[in-house]
Amino acid sequence: MDKFATPALPDVYRLVDGYSVEMTGKDVPGLLEAREAIPAGTRVNVTFLGNEDLDMRVTAAKAVNDAGFVPVPHISARRLKSQSQLEEFLDRLQQVGASEKVFVVGGDPTTPEGPYDSAYAVIQSGVLQQYGVKEVSIAGYPEGHPDISKDALWDHLGKKCASLREQDLDAVILTQFAFDTAPVISWISAVRELGIDAPIRVGTPGPAGVKRLLGFARRFGIGANAMIVKKYGFSLTNLMGTAGPDRFITDLAELVTETEDAGTVQLHFYTFGGMRATAEWVQKYLARVEA
């Protein structure tokens, strides 16, 4: 398929319309810079990184809310040192109107820093809804996880969805980014075959430098061999260049449309190249589709 070919307009809009983006706790200036380019009401995920503190995360979530977007703060289970730390974070989020939607993930530390060894443990704690949480996003890994077996990933995905359903909490599945649509669409089909009907947000990098993209791919165990990256739309021989997800989104839109019972599938942009660059890229991509 040609890099600039696009599928039928409804196919693209179903995938791209209502996209979500991600920012770090310290990137409030980037959010404000990109504000005019991001549609009002867009979901903005706020990370929970080891080099960020409580005030930084809450300030960022408040900035998202104040800017007219929907904050989705991250909760990194293995970074939580105690239940009281989780409660303090949720309480602070609730005070700034940013606790209704959260993303609960296991997190990077191999050894938990407190009582929660997984996202499932946080969900099972019963603490979330005490602070107004109504929707919980959980992680999906179409290409697997470098440190977790596929069996364990599927087991936890099913248990998390079941627990959220039992607690009357809405679920959203947010995937790690990928360069290849084939494992993504296969994974979506497998999720639906398990009877999980939660909306799926497929992670994809916004436009960024090739070297930067490959660095993140290695960090998260994402396949990045020559055949796959060529299919995505860039070359390993041009590491100084930049790449956008044009071809990935075009192909994925067609595959989702062709897949029976794919359910609700939308995009989540990892803004490795900056929030404004990502938002403006989306505007140009949709304009090209409409032309």
Rank of each mutant, 00 (worst) to 15 (best):
A37E: 14
G215W: 03
G25A: 08
T181Y: 01
F69M: 08
E22D: 05
A226W: 02
D17S: 02
A40L: 15
H268N: 09
E33C: 01
G195C: 06
V256D: 04
A262Y: 11
D2Y: 10
F220W: 14
G233Y: 06
T259Y: 02
E113N: 05
D251W: 00
A40I: 14
T111I: 11
E290W: 03
E113V: 04
E260I: 09
D2C: 06
S125E: 03
G97F: 02
F4N: 03
G114I: 09
A34K: 14
I185L: 11
L286C: 08
G223I: 15
D108W: 14
E100T: 14
A61R: 04
L252W: 04
P245L: 04
G144C: 07
V12W: 01
F177C: 01
E36F: 03
F103H: 09
S76H: 09
R35E: 13
A198Y: 05
H74F: 04
A279V: 05
P109Q: 10
F248L: 10
G158L: 15
D55Y: 00
A182I: 05
G30Q: 14
A8C: 08
R43T: 11
V96N: 05
P73Y: 02
A60W: 04
A60I: 09
A8D: 03
E254S: 13
T259D: 02
T24A: 12
Q283T: 15
G215E: 08
V122H: 09
T175C: 12
V105A: 13
P29Q: 04
A77S: 12
A243F: 05
L286G: 02
L80F: 00
A279G: 09
P245G: 07
S76D: 07
P115T: 09
T42A: 07
Q283E: 15
A77N: 05
G244R: 10
R192V: 05
A162N: 03
A182P: 00
S76G: 12
V122K: 09
F220G: 15
D27E: 07
F272C: 08
I138S: 14
M1T: 01
R57S: 11
T111M: 05
R92D: 15
L239D: 00
I38W: 05
V282K: 02
L213Q: 04
A182S: 08
V282N: 05
V184R: 03
P39D: 04
A208I: 07
F48E: 10
T237V: 14
F248H: 07
D180M: 06
A61L: 01
E290K: 05
V256H: 10
S84W: 06
G30V: 12
G144E: 04
I200N: 02
K81N: 13
V46D: 13
Q266R: 07
K284E: 13
G25W: 02
V265K: 05
S84H: 08
E36K: 13
E52Y: 02
Y232W: 06
E193F: 09
P199R: 10
S82K: 06
P73F: 00
Y270R: 07
P112L: 05
G221L: 07
V256N: 04
P183I: 07
V229G: 06
Y19P: 01
F48R: 04
K231F: 01
G50K: 07
